[in-house]
Protein backbone atom coordinates (compact mmCIF):
# COMPACT_ATOMS: atom_id res chain seq x y z
CA UNK A 1 0.00 0.00 0.00
CA UNK A 2 1.25 3.40 -0.97
CA UNK A 3 1.90 5.95 1.71
CA UNK A 4 1.30 8.97 -0.50
CA UNK A 5 -1.14 11.40 1.09
CA UNK A 6 -3.69 13.10 -1.16
CA UNK A 7 -6.63 15.43 -0.81
CA UNK A 8 -10.23 14.27 -0.88
CA UNK A 9 -10.89 16.01 -4.19
CA UNK A 10 -7.98 14.20 -5.80
CA UNK A 11 -9.17 10.91 -4.31
CA UNK A 12 -12.62 11.38 -5.80
CA UNK A 13 -11.31 12.33 -9.26
CA UNK A 14 -8.94 9.37 -9.13
CA UNK A 15 -11.71 6.88 -8.39
CA UNK A 16 -13.80 8.25 -11.25
CA UNK A 17 -10.77 8.09 -13.56
CA UNK A 18 -10.10 4.43 -12.70
CA UNK A 19 -13.73 3.49 -13.20
CA UNK A 20 -13.89 5.31 -16.54
CA UNK A 21 -10.77 3.46 -17.64
CA UNK A 22 -12.17 0.04 -16.73
CA UNK A 23 -15.74 0.57 -17.97
CA UNK A 24 -16.61 2.53 -21.14
CA UNK A 25 -20.19 2.88 -19.90
CA UNK A 26 -19.11 5.22 -17.12
CA UNK A 27 -19.35 8.89 -18.06
CA UNK A 28 -19.56 12.25 -16.27
CA UNK A 29 -21.85 15.19 -16.82
CA UNK A 30 -22.69 18.38 -14.98
CA UNK A 31 -22.01 22.07 -14.76
CA UNK A 32 -18.35 23.07 -15.20
CA UNK A 33 -17.09 19.49 -14.93
CA UNK A 34 -15.11 19.84 -18.20
CA UNK A 35 -12.25 22.28 -18.66
CA UNK A 36 -12.90 23.77 -15.23
CA UNK A 37 -12.59 20.34 -13.62
CA UNK A 38 -15.53 20.80 -11.27
CA UNK A 39 -15.97 23.89 -9.10
CA UNK A 40 -14.68 21.81 -6.17
CA UNK A 41 -12.08 19.90 -8.24
CA UNK A 42 -13.96 16.60 -8.17
CA UNK A 43 -13.37 16.00 -11.89
CA UNK A 44 -9.93 17.57 -12.36
CA UNK A 45 -8.00 16.05 -15.26
CA UNK A 46 -10.86 13.92 -16.59
CA UNK A 47 -11.77 16.19 -19.51
CA UNK A 48 -8.16 16.28 -20.73
CA UNK A 49 -7.98 12.49 -20.55
CA UNK A 50 -11.39 11.40 -21.84
CA UNK A 51 -12.66 14.38 -23.85
CA UNK A 52 -16.03 16.03 -24.09
CA UNK A 53 -17.93 12.91 -25.11
CA UNK A 54 -17.41 11.27 -21.74
CA UNK A 55 -16.93 14.37 -19.59
CA UNK A 56 -19.79 16.59 -20.59
CA UNK A 57 -20.43 20.17 -19.57
CA UNK A 58 -24.16 20.73 -19.40
CA UNK A 59 -26.38 23.77 -19.65
CA UNK A 60 -27.88 24.94 -16.35
CA UNK A 61 -30.79 22.59 -17.00
CA UNK A 62 -30.81 20.18 -14.08
CA UNK A 63 -34.21 18.66 -14.69
CA UNK A 64 -33.00 17.76 -18.18
CA UNK A 65 -29.57 16.38 -17.42
CA UNK A 66 -30.39 14.62 -14.16
CA UNK A 67 -33.51 13.15 -15.74
CA UNK A 68 -31.29 12.15 -18.66
CA UNK A 69 -28.98 10.32 -16.25
CA UNK A 70 -31.94 8.21 -15.15
CA UNK A 71 -32.83 7.50 -18.78
CA UNK A 72 -29.26 6.67 -19.79
CA UNK A 73 -28.81 4.40 -16.76
CA UNK A 74 -31.97 2.50 -17.62
CA UNK A 75 -30.33 1.79 -20.99
CA UNK A 76 -27.22 0.35 -19.37
CA UNK A 77 -24.94 3.38 -19.05
CA UNK A 78 -23.38 4.34 -15.72
CA UNK A 79 -23.64 8.13 -15.42
CA UNK A 80 -21.93 10.17 -12.76
CA UNK A 81 -23.72 13.48 -12.51
CA UNK A 82 -22.54 16.47 -10.57
CA UNK A 83 -24.80 19.22 -9.38
CA UNK A 84 -22.53 21.84 -7.87
CA UNK A 85 -24.27 22.51 -4.53
CA UNK A 86 -26.82 20.30 -2.76
CA UNK A 87 -28.75 23.53 -2.21
CA UNK A 88 -29.53 23.54 -5.95
CA UNK A 89 -31.39 20.23 -6.05
CA UNK A 90 -34.75 21.90 -5.61
CA UNK A 91 -34.96 22.76 -9.28
CA UNK A 92 -34.84 19.10 -10.36
CA UNK A 93 -36.24 17.33 -7.33
CA UNK A 94 -39.07 15.62 -9.19
CA UNK A 95 -36.62 13.77 -11.44
CA UNK A 96 -34.80 12.62 -8.32
CA UNK A 97 -37.40 11.71 -5.76
CA UNK A 98 -40.22 10.58 -8.02
CA UNK A 99 -38.20 8.92 -10.75
CA UNK A 100 -34.58 8.13 -9.97
CA UNK A 101 -35.57 6.96 -6.48
CA UNK A 102 -38.73 5.05 -7.43
CA UNK A 103 -38.45 3.55 -10.90
CA UNK A 104 -36.61 0.48 -9.67
CA UNK A 105 -39.31 -0.21 -7.08
CA UNK A 106 -42.25 0.58 -9.34
CA UNK A 107 -40.84 -1.72 -12.01
CA UNK A 108 -40.69 -4.59 -9.55
CA UNK A 109 -36.92 -4.42 -9.59
CA UNK A 110 -36.66 -4.81 -13.36
CA UNK A 111 -35.20 -1.36 -13.99
CA UNK A 112 -31.65 -0.79 -12.82
CA UNK A 113 -30.44 2.77 -12.30
CA UNK A 114 -26.70 2.84 -11.63
CA UNK A 115 -26.46 6.61 -11.29
CA UNK A 116 -24.08 8.49 -9.00
CA UNK A 117 -25.34 11.96 -8.13
CA UNK A 118 -22.42 13.89 -6.74
CA UNK A 119 -22.74 17.19 -4.92
CA UNK A 120 -21.05 19.57 -2.51
CA UNK A 121 -22.57 20.28 0.88
CA UNK A 122 -21.90 22.23 4.01
CA UNK A 123 -20.87 25.61 5.31
CA UNK A 124 -18.31 27.30 7.47
CA UNK A 125 -17.05 29.82 4.92
CA UNK A 126 -19.90 32.37 4.94
CA UNK A 127 -21.67 31.42 1.75
CA UNK A 128 -25.11 32.00 3.27
CA UNK A 129 -28.44 30.22 3.22
CA UNK A 130 -28.53 28.96 -0.38
CA UNK A 131 -24.96 27.63 -0.63
CA UNK A 132 -24.21 26.14 2.81
CA UNK A 133 -26.80 23.51 3.61
CA UNK A 134 -26.21 19.84 4.35
CA UNK A 135 -29.59 18.32 3.44
CA UNK A 136 -28.38 14.72 3.25
CA UNK A 137 -31.19 13.67 5.56
CA UNK A 138 -33.72 14.99 3.05
CA UNK A 139 -32.47 12.51 0.47
CA UNK A 140 -31.99 9.72 3.01
CA UNK A 141 -35.66 10.15 3.90
CA UNK A 142 -36.78 9.15 0.42
CA UNK A 143 -36.67 5.38 -0.10
CA UNK A 144 -34.62 4.37 -3.12
CA UNK A 145 -31.57 6.58 -2.79
CA UNK A 146 -28.33 5.46 -1.19
CA UNK A 147 -26.56 8.31 0.56
CA UNK A 148 -22.80 8.55 1.02
CA UNK A 149 -21.00 11.23 3.07
CA UNK A 150 -17.23 10.61 3.30
CA UNK A 151 -15.06 12.39 5.85
CA UNK A 152 -11.58 11.78 4.42
CA UNK A 153 -9.66 10.98 1.26
CA UNK A 154 -9.31 7.22 1.83
CA UNK A 155 -13.01 6.69 2.41
CA UNK A 156 -13.90 9.12 -0.38
CA UNK A 157 -12.06 7.09 -2.99
CA UNK A 158 -13.22 3.69 -1.81
CA UNK A 159 -16.81 4.84 -1.45
CA UNK A 160 -16.76 6.38 -4.93
CA UNK A 161 -15.61 3.10 -6.44
CA UNK A 162 -18.40 1.31 -4.63
CA UNK A 163 -20.97 3.94 -5.61
CA UNK A 164 -20.11 3.73 -9.31
CA UNK A 165 -20.24 -0.09 -9.28
CA UNK A 166 -23.55 -0.13 -7.40
CA UNK A 167 -26.57 -0.87 -9.60
CA UNK A 168 -28.68 1.60 -7.60
CA UNK A 169 -28.80 5.39 -7.43
CA UNK A 170 -26.23 6.76 -5.01
CA UNK A 171 -26.18 10.34 -3.76
CA UNK A 172 -22.55 11.17 -3.06
CA UNK A 173 -22.07 14.19 -0.77
CA UNK A 174 -18.67 15.78 -0.29
CA UNK A 175 -18.07 18.63 2.14
CA UNK A 176 -16.41 21.60 0.42
CA UNK A 177 -14.24 22.19 3.46
CA UNK A 178 -12.81 18.65 3.33
CA UNK A 179 -11.74 18.68 -0.32
CA UNK A 180 -8.28 20.16 0.29
CA UNK A 181 -8.89 23.03 -2.11
CA UNK A 182 -6.23 25.70 -2.31
CA UNK A 183 -8.80 28.39 -1.61
CA UNK A 184 -10.71 26.97 1.37
CA UNK A 185 -9.37 25.73 4.70
CA UNK A 186 -9.51 21.99 5.33
CA UNK A 187 -8.75 20.06 8.52
CA UNK A 188 -5.36 18.39 8.14
CA UNK A 189 -6.97 15.04 8.96
CA UNK A 190 -9.10 15.10 5.78
CA UNK A 191 -6.13 14.33 3.51
CA UNK A 192 -4.96 10.76 4.13
CA UNK A 193 -2.75 8.09 2.63
CA UNK A 194 -4.59 6.64 -0.36
CA UNK A 195 -3.60 3.63 -2.49
CA UNK A 196 -3.04 4.41 -6.15
CA UNK A 197 -5.06 1.48 -7.43
CA UNK A 198 -8.74 0.76 -7.00
CA UNK A 199 -10.32 -0.54 -3.79
CA UNK A 200 -13.78 -0.39 -2.33
CA UNK A 201 -15.24 0.74 0.96
CA UNK A 202 -18.60 -0.94 1.49
CA UNK A 203 -21.78 1.10 1.85
CA UNK A 204 -23.51 0.64 5.19
CA UNK A 205 -20.39 0.08 7.27
CA UNK A 206 -19.69 2.79 9.83
CA UNK A 207 -16.21 3.24 11.20
CA UNK A 208 -15.23 3.67 14.82
CA UNK A 209 -12.64 6.38 14.36
CA UNK A 210 -11.89 6.73 18.06
CA UNK A 211 -12.54 4.23 20.81
CA UNK A 212 -13.86 5.37 24.15
CA UNK A 213 -15.82 4.30 27.20
CA UNK A 214 -17.88 7.21 28.53
CA UNK A 215 -20.01 8.31 25.61
CA UNK A 216 -20.60 7.67 21.91
CA UNK A 217 -20.44 10.52 19.44
CA UNK A 218 -22.27 9.62 16.24
CA UNK A 219 -21.37 11.87 13.35
CA UNK A 220 -20.20 12.14 9.74
CA UNK A 221 -18.44 14.36 7.20
CA UNK A 222 -16.80 17.54 8.44
CA UNK A 223 -18.21 16.98 11.92
CA UNK A 224 -15.99 13.90 12.35
CA UNK A 225 -12.99 16.22 12.47
CA UNK A 226 -14.65 18.68 14.82
CA UNK A 227 -15.71 15.80 17.07
CA UNK A 228 -12.15 14.47 17.13
CA UNK A 229 -10.99 17.88 18.30
CA UNK A 230 -13.68 17.89 20.96
CA UNK A 231 -12.69 14.38 22.05
CA UNK A 232 -9.09 15.48 22.52
CA UNK A 233 -10.33 18.26 24.82
CA UNK A 234 -12.62 15.88 26.68
CA UNK A 235 -9.70 13.51 27.21
CA UNK A 236 -7.94 16.25 29.15
CA UNK A 237 -11.01 16.47 31.39
CA UNK A 238 -10.87 12.73 31.93
CA UNK A 239 -13.76 11.89 29.60
CA UNK A 240 -13.27 9.11 27.08
CA UNK A 241 -15.35 9.62 23.92
CA UNK A 242 -15.96 7.02 21.25
CA UNK A 243 -16.55 8.48 17.80
CA UNK A 244 -18.49 6.74 15.05
CA UNK A 245 -18.14 8.03 11.49
CA UNK A 246 -21.31 6.79 9.82
CA UNK A 247 -19.84 7.22 6.28
CA UNK A 248 -23.18 6.33 4.72
CA UNK A 249 -26.72 7.25 5.81
CA UNK A 250 -28.38 4.80 3.46
CA UNK A 251 -27.72 2.06 4.21
CA UNK A 252 -27.26 3.03 7.85
CA UNK A 253 -25.03 0.86 10.02
CA UNK A 254 -27.42 0.70 12.98
CA UNK A 255 -25.61 -2.25 14.51
CA UNK A 256 -22.37 -0.36 15.12
CA UNK A 257 -24.28 2.54 16.67
CA UNK A 258 -26.33 0.30 18.95
CA UNK A 259 -23.33 -1.72 20.03
CA UNK A 260 -21.44 1.39 21.03
CA UNK A 261 -24.51 2.85 22.78
CA UNK A 262 -24.82 -0.36 24.80
CA UNK A 263 -21.18 -0.04 25.78
CA UNK A 264 -21.09 3.64 26.78
CA UNK A 265 -24.71 4.27 27.72
CA UNK A 266 -24.59 7.80 26.31
CA UNK A 267 -25.18 8.90 22.72
CA UNK A 268 -24.39 12.34 21.36
CA UNK A 269 -25.18 13.05 17.72
CA UNK A 270 -23.18 15.80 16.03
CA UNK A 271 -24.82 16.86 12.78
CA UNK A 272 -24.24 19.80 10.42
CA UNK A 273 -27.78 19.44 9.09
CA UNK A 274 -30.88 21.03 10.60
CA UNK A 275 -31.74 19.55 13.98
CA UNK A 276 -35.39 18.59 13.65
CA UNK A 277 -36.81 15.69 11.66
CA UNK A 278 -33.42 14.46 10.53
CA UNK A 279 -30.35 12.35 11.30
CA UNK A 280 -30.18 13.06 15.01
CA UNK A 281 -33.79 12.00 15.53
CA UNK A 282 -33.20 8.87 13.46
CA UNK A 283 -30.20 7.86 15.57
CA UNK A 284 -32.18 8.45 18.76
CA UNK A 285 -35.01 6.29 17.43
CA UNK A 286 -32.58 3.57 16.37
CA UNK A 287 -30.99 3.38 19.80
CA UNK A 288 -34.34 3.63 21.58
CA UNK A 289 -35.88 0.85 19.49
CA UNK A 290 -32.95 -1.35 20.44
CA UNK A 291 -33.64 -0.62 24.10
CA UNK A 292 -30.19 0.95 24.42
CA UNK A 293 -31.19 4.58 24.94
CA UNK A 294 -30.20 5.78 28.37
CA UNK A 295 -28.83 9.22 27.78
CA UNK A 296 -29.09 11.17 24.53
CA UNK A 297 -28.14 14.63 23.25
CA UNK A 298 -27.57 16.31 19.93
CA UNK A 299 -25.61 19.22 18.57
CA UNK A 300 -26.97 20.33 15.21
CA UNK A 301 -28.03 23.47 13.33
CA UNK A 302 -30.86 24.89 15.47
CA UNK A 303 -33.57 24.91 12.78
CA UNK A 304 -32.61 28.18 11.13
CA UNK A 305 -31.33 28.77 7.59
CA UNK A 306 -27.54 29.19 7.53
CA UNK A 307 -26.91 32.90 8.15
CA UNK A 308 -24.31 34.83 6.16
CA UNK A 309 -22.60 36.97 8.79
CA UNK A 310 -19.57 35.26 10.39
CA UNK A 311 -20.61 35.49 14.08
CA UNK A 312 -24.09 34.22 13.18
CA UNK A 313 -22.85 31.28 11.11
CA UNK A 314 -20.31 30.29 13.74
CA UNK A 315 -23.06 30.36 16.32
CA UNK A 316 -25.30 27.89 14.49
CA UNK A 317 -22.68 25.39 13.29
CA UNK A 318 -21.51 22.74 15.75
CA UNK A 319 -17.91 23.35 16.83
CA UNK A 320 -15.44 21.55 19.09
CA UNK A 321 -16.45 23.70 22.07
CA UNK A 322 -20.20 23.16 21.74
CA UNK A 323 -19.62 19.45 21.16
CA UNK A 324 -17.40 19.15 24.23
CA UNK A 325 -19.87 21.15 26.32
CA UNK A 326 -22.73 18.86 25.32
CA UNK A 327 -20.63 15.81 26.15
CA UNK A 328 -19.65 17.20 29.53
CA UNK A 329 -23.27 18.03 30.24
CA UNK A 330 -24.17 14.38 29.69
CA UNK A 331 -21.45 13.17 32.02
CA UNK A 332 -22.59 15.54 34.75
CA UNK A 333 -26.11 14.15 34.60
CA UNK A 334 -26.99 11.62 37.25
CA UNK A 335 -26.69 8.04 36.05
Amino acid sequence: MSERKITMSKAIAEAIDLEMARDPKVFVMGEDVGIYGGIFSSTTGLFAKYGGDRVKDTPISETAFIGAATGAAAEGMRPIVELMFVDFFGVCMDQIYNHLAKNTYMSGGSVKLPVVLMTAYGGGYNDAAQHSQSLYSLFAHVPGLKVVVPSNAYDAKGLMHTAIRDDNPVMYFFHKGLMGLGWMSSPATASTPVPEGDYTVPLGQAKVVREGQDLTIVTLGWMVHRSLEAAAELEKAGISAEIIDLRTLVPLDRETVIKSAQKTGRVLVVDEDYQSFGLSGEIAATVAEAGALKSFRRVAVPDVPIPYSRPLEQYVLPNPQTIAQAAQGMLEMVG
Binding site: N126, D127, A128, A129, Q130, H131, P305, P307, Y308, S309, R310, P311, L312
Partner: peptide, 16 residues
Protein backbone atom coordinates in the same frame (compact mmCIF):
# COMPACT_ATOMS: atom_id res chain seq x y z
CA UNK B 1 -19.96 43.06 5.35
CA UNK B 2 -22.34 40.93 7.43
CA UNK B 3 -23.31 43.79 9.72
CA UNK B 4 -26.33 44.42 11.91
CA UNK B 5 -27.11 47.61 9.93
CA UNK B 6 -27.32 45.69 6.65
CA UNK B 7 -30.44 45.23 4.54
CA UNK B 8 -30.99 41.82 6.10
CA UNK B 9 -29.17 42.47 9.39
CA UNK B 10 -26.34 40.25 8.15
CA UNK B 11 -28.53 37.25 7.46
CA UNK B 12 -28.46 37.37 3.67
CA UNK B 13 -25.13 38.48 2.26
CA UNK B 14 -24.27 39.65 -1.22
CA UNK B 15 -26.38 37.16 -3.19
CA UNK B 16 -29.45 37.73 -1.05
Amino acid sequence: FGKKTGLGQGKGGHMH
